[in-house]
Write a protein that binds this DNA or RNA. Structure first.
Lengths: 212, 212
DNA sequence: CCTAGTTTTTGGACTCAGTACAGTATCTAA
DNA sequence: TTAGATACTGTACTGAGTCCAAAAACTAGG
């Protein structure tokens, strides 16, 4: 769950490229033996690193499935923080679409290649759901800042969850459509636009002082 | 993950009330030692049952946190199946509200009492997310039947996820509001009505043959 | 060169959830 | 009584995740 940049300024024992080694070894082994059929021991052995080191870099085995998404979520959080200062409520939509547009089409998350192979083990599903929830949390922060409402407010939570659900639907459908699909951005736009007008209306209604 | 009704028609060794014994022992121990601080061994020992029996009744420790919700989801699935034969798209809203109205206000899921005590361990969050995903899956089945579209269709998925997200937002906010809150049904209605018009419109637009 | 301080890496012991399965207990039906 | 069915138990195993003390590799300062 860490994304440590690892800028060792000089002091202390320097990092070996452990993180990258582990990621690569894992990617190989997942292809050979599937995610479930691969143990952390095998990964660290192939990476030429001790098992304990694994947990210096990753909080859980399932983190290996979601680097791309985790990085994307980091970008999302940054973009939201920037937009929440200046932008309107509408800007959340823009941020979401930009993120989708900027996502490297060729780097489909490892997780999704795994679900194609086998029927998506519980562990994979759950770790994916965590990422969706994380995204919802980012949305909630943005919306509560924009709407001047509490983070736990029903409207904020509803909007955040619904948005995250819609985005997830788009990403999953896009991933399932396989090679030859149209760009991710279009999927996300379609999906979000089903939901967004209702959210906009609700926030405007609240802003006008109607009870909610 | 099972909810076996356990109607032993007669043949075979009759069940002792193992399931109930386990549930009760767990509820006690969770209060005494919290969820994370309780092991399956302790639960089965107090229940006077072997550890192996635990896994005859529950697929995972976290299932103990969600009986009520799992039962509610079973009802939901049944109601959706019934409604998908006769009702309109609108009936999904009715089903959701009925479920909320029928939920025993005093039986707040064990999970939520746990998150109050401590900061919601990952395991608890994840098992909760699984329930939300299950609900989304039920919605997707209904919507694909009603809309004559495939279960993996982008619109179906979007609507199902957004609905599930909205419902979850309502339940969580309701639970957090603690004693003295207004009925759950009101929360759910507010939440769903932010989302639902957009979904209705999208399905109608599709039904008219517009590209989506 | 030596030393002190810092950070990464390692090895090993541990807990606990979840799986597998063979064997036993308790019931019904014939 | 016996055969078949189902519920329960004991036991052994795998593997994820935690903890911690110690070693390794480096820098800076004397």
């Amino acid at each position: 769950m860490q994304t440590s940049a690892g800028q060792t300024a000089g002091v202390g024992r320097p990092k070996v490229s452990s993180r990258q080694l582990i990621e690569d070894a894992a990617a190989e082994l997942f292809i050979e033996n599937t995610y479930v059929g691969t143990t952390i021991d095998q990964i660290t052995t192939r990476a030429g690193v001790s098992r304990a080191t694994f947990f210096n870099y990753f909080g859980a085995k399932s983190d290996l499935l979601w680097f791309e998404v985790d990085r994307a979520n980091d970008s999302l959080r940054a973009a939201c923080a920037a937009a929440s200062a200046t932008g309107s409520l509408e800007s959340i939509r823009d941020v979401i679409l930009e993120l989708a547009a900027g996502f490297d089409e060729r780097r489909v998350p490892l997780a999704l290649t795994q679900t194609e192979v086998m029927g998506a083990a519980d562990e994979i599903v759950q770790s994916g759901l965590v990422r969706i929830a994380t995204q919802a949390s980012v949305f909630a922060d943005f919306l509560s800042a924009r709407g001047a409402r509490h983070r736990d407010d029903l409207l904020v939570r509803t909007a955040a969850n619904a948005l995250a659900g819609a985005v997830a639907a788009a990403w999953i459908t896009w991933a399932r459509d396989g090679i030859g699909r149209s760009p991710l951005e279009g999927y996300v736009a379609e999906s979000v636009d089903v939901i967004f007008p209702g959210i906009r209306a609700a926030f405007e209604s609240v802003a006008r002082g109607n009870t909610f």
